[in-house]
Amino acid sequence: MIEFQHVSFAYEPGRPVIRDLSFTIGDGEAVGLIGANGAGKSTVMKLLLGLLQGEGRILVDGREVGRDSLAEVRRKLGFVLQNSDHQMFMPTVYEDMMFAPLNYGLSREEAEKRVDGVLARLGLTELKHRHNHRISGGEKRMAAIATVLAMEPEAVLMDEPTSALDPYNRRVVINTIRDLPQTKLITSHDLDMILDTCRRVILMSSGQVVADGPAEDILRDKVLLEANRMELPFCLAGRAGL
């Protein structure tokens, strides 16, 4: 589904943020992209979405991400931003959710049916006509996920989906992510959430893949994590008696 082939990128000449990055994500896989601040996780997302252009090749469903394929690629990838306030720009949740389906040529009736379906599936029907500036942080995060699901993307990309959420809302978001059937690529420092939602983890450091494998193996490797400025997930640290 997603393939990075020797991708490099630098915001400033001579200071690469991504260095010769290669990995593949298969259909339906749930992958956690982890790493310390500045490891290049968000840049990977932006490159994948065509918001930045680097060297090398990025393929989505076999189609290379480039100027000509942007519309097609972006239709397949739904991106949930870290800050929901930056994602939602229409006055109400309903209008925000209608935005993408209408842009992709659905009639208003079809789009509304899809929006109602997503809201019902996520248990957010009561949010439908609420104003974006009047809903809580947790509701806003769920609404942001709903706006992306209304696109019916083939893959969902999420940047820190549980940041700044209280435990209850964090759990709601985690359960929602787990139930999504799409291919998932999630960047986060919340390693417990990654362990809960992803079967595979890619650990990045200085723009390169340091480790790529089953989430249980990588997230249990204290030495590896600490060498890359991270810690064991809380749940595993507890079990290890640390």
Partner: peptide, 23 residues
């Protein structure tokens, strides 16, 4: 910066210089 993020969010949801206003 924030405006750029918002604009990116619009682009990623299929925006192409044309708003679909409510009927």
């Amino acid at each position: 910066d924030r405006a750029q993020e918002l604009y990116s969010s619009m682009l990623l949801r299929g925006y192409h210089d044309h708003f679909h206003y409510a009927p």
